[in-house]
């Protein structure tokens, strides 16, 4: 039984300039306790995918008819707003990118934690405070009672992200959507948080979608990887398969542009050009203009096909 099953997810933004197809036909599953790395550069639709799952797409964007997001068997695209609110924060939690911005600067940490508890459970304030305290201990924040009475600006960036993670963990969610939660942190803190999150997921069987542009981070964290480009998944498979034997030229380019032992002394490879505008996507494969091995056939959109067992790619030139 999968925790989350996304089928043909299409989230479009209806602007004056035209329809921006930020997410255009995305499929994936996440099993309990599994970590899925959703990788892509800015504008690839990875963040919008994450927000779509929580039903947090603001107008002029919306999830287009025909999309399906099944969470524990429940169709979220058909759920009422009140039901979505009840799920958010309790069964599906989210961690944001910039810890400096996710906590309200004018409210104390305890206020922001207790309100989260009481939004989903009818408990007294004392009980809610106790839960908040335990959650802070769980993410490794020392002297939690003192910290609860503090304001966000009295915390460092890493500490704030720990608080945000503690808030996400308050209701022991079945799924956590993490939107680049370590990007804004320095590397040592990044490592600690990664380790912490991995441990918490394993212990509680929480499924996780880790949205990032950083292949190096997900390589050590995720069980499976899905690479997104211009609103579509172009390659997906087990982490080791995708990293070691990438099939899509875009994935190859991403991996080639990460510095490693082997690239020492050599020029780093880079992918030429920029992500195409979502308003004016070319016909066929969106990557063809930047692709070193593009052929005429690329003017037709290739399907996402299983070229090796459990390893899928959306490319005419992918080989098994």
């Amino acid at each position: 039984m999968t925790t989350l099953s996304v089928r043909n997810l299409r989230t479009h933004f209806f602007t004056k300039e035209g329809v921006a197809k930020a997410v255009d036909g995305v499929d994936f599953d996440v099993a309990p306790g599994e970590i899925l790395g959703l990788v892509g550069e800015s504008g690839s639709g990875k963040t919008v995918t994450g927000f779509s799952i929580l039903g947090l797409i603001d107008p002029p964007g919306r999830i287009v008819e025909g999309s399906s997001i099944r969470f524990n068997g429940e169709e979220l695209t058909a759920a009422r707003p009140e039901r979505l609110r009840a799920i958010r924060g309790s069964e599906i939690a989210m961690i944001f990118q910039d810890p400096m911005m996710t906590l309200n600067p004018v409210l104390r940490v305890d206020t922001q934690m207790i309100e989260t508890v009481q939004a989903h459970l009818k408990v007294s304030e004392a009980d809610a405070r106790d839960r908040a305290r335990k959650a802070l201990v769980q993410v490794g924040i020392p002297s939690p009672d003192e910290r609860l009475r503090a304001y966000p600006h009295q915390f460092s960036g890493g500490m704030r992200q720990r608080v945000a993670i503690a808030i996400a963990l308050l209701h022991k969610p079945k799924l956590i959507v993490a939107d680049e939660p370590t990007t804004a942190l320095d590397v040592t803190i990044q490592g600690q948080i990664l380790f912490e999150v991995q441990r918490l997921c394993r212990e509680s069987g929480t499924a996780m979608i880790w949205v990032t542009h950083d292949l190096a981070v997900v390589a050590g964290l995720a069980d499976r990887i899905a690479v997104m480009y211009a609103g579509r998944i172009v390659e997906t498979g087990r982490t080791a398969d995708v990293i070691e034997r990438p099939m899509h030229p875009y994935t190859k380019g991403l991996i080639g542009s990460v510095p490693s032992q082997n690239t020492r002394g050599h020029k780093l490879a880079q992918i030429p050009g920029m992500t195409p505008s979502l308003l004016r996507l070319p016909r066929g494969c969106a990557f063809k203009a930047r692709c070193p091995i593009a052929i005429d056939q690329c003017n037709e959109m290739p399907a996402l096909e299983e070229h090796r067992p459990g390893h899928w790619a959306r490319c005419w030139r992918a080989t098994g």
């Binding site: 799920i87 958010r88 939690a93 944001f96 309100e115 989260t116 939004a119 808030i167």
Partner: peptide, 8 residues
């Protein structure tokens, strides 16, 4: 947005 994501 985070407050929305918390289910408030």
């Amino acid at each position: 947005k985070f407050a929305r994501a918390k289910g408030l």
